[in-house]
């Protein structure tokens, strides 16, 4: 069973530990601006939403890539960017409807979440269980996929998760 990141914004306190952990693990620096997971802040209401790639089945980023620089990691199911192959054309950044593939002008390549090879640091760093790494079935991925099939306007409230399972992640 492939595992996936489960994001529960209502548990997020905006501490940014996930961004620190991600940037350190993947870029070698504690710098939230280099993180692949982002905590979006709703300043007016004091709420927070962590968000990153859901490793969706459609993989629009991967199919749009002109040079086969995005591939599936068969072990984790993550869609990974091959840095040496990426030419930096950015077509994946507009193809991803979730906005979770970003261009890094310093490297001239794109970056996205690769689940840290199967041990995502954001989940390990999250102190409140807002980010957990769980069996794929638990993440409501089907709901996220469903949007692509829709062609009629739908009230956004239909998109909110119906019920939530208790996090099964154990902190080490």
């Amino acid at each position: 069973m492939l595992r996936a990141l489960k994001l529960e914004p209502e548990k997020c306190t905006g501490c940014l530990q996930c961004e620190m952990a991600c940037s350190y693990e993947n870029e070698g620096v504690f710098n939230p601006s280099k993180s692949r997971i982002k905590v979006f802040m709703f300043h007016d209401t004091g709420r927070f939403a962590p968000y990153t790639c859901t490793q969706c089945d459609e993989a629009w980023c991967m199919h749009a890539c002109p040079v086969e620089a995005i591939v599936v990691n068969e072990t984790t199911g993550a869609k990974e960017v091959l840095e040496d192959t990426c030419v930096g054309c950015k077509v994946c950044t507009i193809a991803c409807p979730f906005g979770t593939v970003n261009y890094n002008s310093a490297s001239g390549k794109v970056v996205k979440c690769d689940l840290c090879g199967g041990d995502p640091w954001c989940a390990k760093a999250c102190p409140t269980g807002a980010i957990t790494y769980v069996d794929g079935d638990h993440t409501g991925l089907d709901r996220m996929r469903a949007w692509a099939q829709r062609s009629q306007p739908v009230e956004a409230s239909f998109n909110t998760p119906a019920s939530k399972d208790v996090s099964s992640y154990q902190r080490a």
């Binding site: 994001l7 529960e8 914004p9 209502e10 982002k38 979006f40 802040m41 709703f42 209401t45 709420r47 927070f48 939403a49 968000y51 906005g99 949007w147 956004a156 409230s157 998109n159 909110t160 998760p161 939530k164």
Partner: peptide, 20 residues
């Protein structure tokens, strides 16, 4: 604020999943 708009309208954001 496009990303916030997207998240607010498609995800359960906020304490106890009240949509913002």
């Amino acid at each position: 604020r496009i990303m916030e708009a997207y998240l607010a309208r498609t995800q359960a954001v906020g304490f106890n999943a009240y949509v913002v």
